[in-house]
Design a protein around this nucleic acid. Structure first.
Lengths: 138, 138
DNA sequence: TTCATTTTTGTACTCATTACAATACTGATT
DNA sequence: AATCAGTATTGTAATGAGTACAAAAATGAA
């Protein structure tokens, strides 16, 4: 819903401009973890004057406000994700698709060496997704 | 030891040239997870004609042969690591240093949704390292 | 309407990485 | 030792994501 996203932006102290709303709504509406380019291609028709710089600016703002998060996997282009609770990511080595992984809380039981303080964590699993597994059956 | 690395290269079917030996030895001798630039700056005095392209080529060769691995953390420049058994990485948000993390085998008990096949995994922990914790005590 | 502030845009730049062709090296063969 | 093919290394140019920054446009209060 757009009204919901307007509220979210306002709560975060961000003026809900058209560009910001569209970007937030789009990223929230897909599970594809879109890149800046994908966002641009998607919204360019609705906002003909849209510039990539605006997308970069907006994403910086939205990630800073914890309405979105950025995901950088294995040297690939930056991607964006609206799923905010902690979770992992799976990237299919064949098709490149990225899937969210629910994390068993047990997974978080890593004991760091003394003196290290954890703030955040990323877990990336690489392999073959169900679809590519199906296609490659030999 | 250099003789040891010569053997490793030969076993991998890679001709042990000076450039390859020096790069492999250097990465193996440090825990800093060096970047291409760090490798270049280190070896330029010993091999005055060394080019960055050679370093890229060589690292591609050595990672392909599983003598080294590349580590790409959170959009940063590519880094290289001679510690081959599976392990995680800790990056200090203050000083940027990267530390290896031994992984409790328990950590590997993530159940993937059905149809997903795991090939490889990365675990990155972000936070403050012991040294920066010390300095920032308030 | 004016004016300051904020948002958006466009252009130029940075910089890691890759592409590719030219050069240098190596080692076997004659 | 000279030749030569194959390999290794280098240098230059291109790519492309991301950033810096200033100009232009939109907003909204006075």
């Amino acid at each position: 819903m757009n009204t919901e996203n307007i509220l979210l932006l306002k709560e975060a102290g961000i003026k809900p401009s058209l560009v910001r709303l569209k970007i937030l709504s789009f990223v929230k509406s897909v599970t594809s973890h879109p890149t800046v380019d994908m966002i641009y291609k998607e919204l360019a028709s609705e906002i003909p004057t849209l510039s990539r710089t605006s997308i970069y600016n907006t994403l910086l703002l939205l990630t800073g406000a914890r309405l979105l998060r950025s995901v950088s996997i294995d040297g690939d282009v930056m991607r964006f994700d609206a799923t905010m609770p902690d979770h992992g990511h799976f990237r299919c080595s064949e098709c490149g698709q990225i899937f969210d992984l629910n994390l068993d809380p047990q997974t978080h039981n890593i004991v760091l060496p003394s003196g290290f303080k954890e703030i955040r964590r990323d877990l990336f699993v690489y392999g073959k997704c169900p679809y590519c597994n199906k296609c490659d059956e030999n």
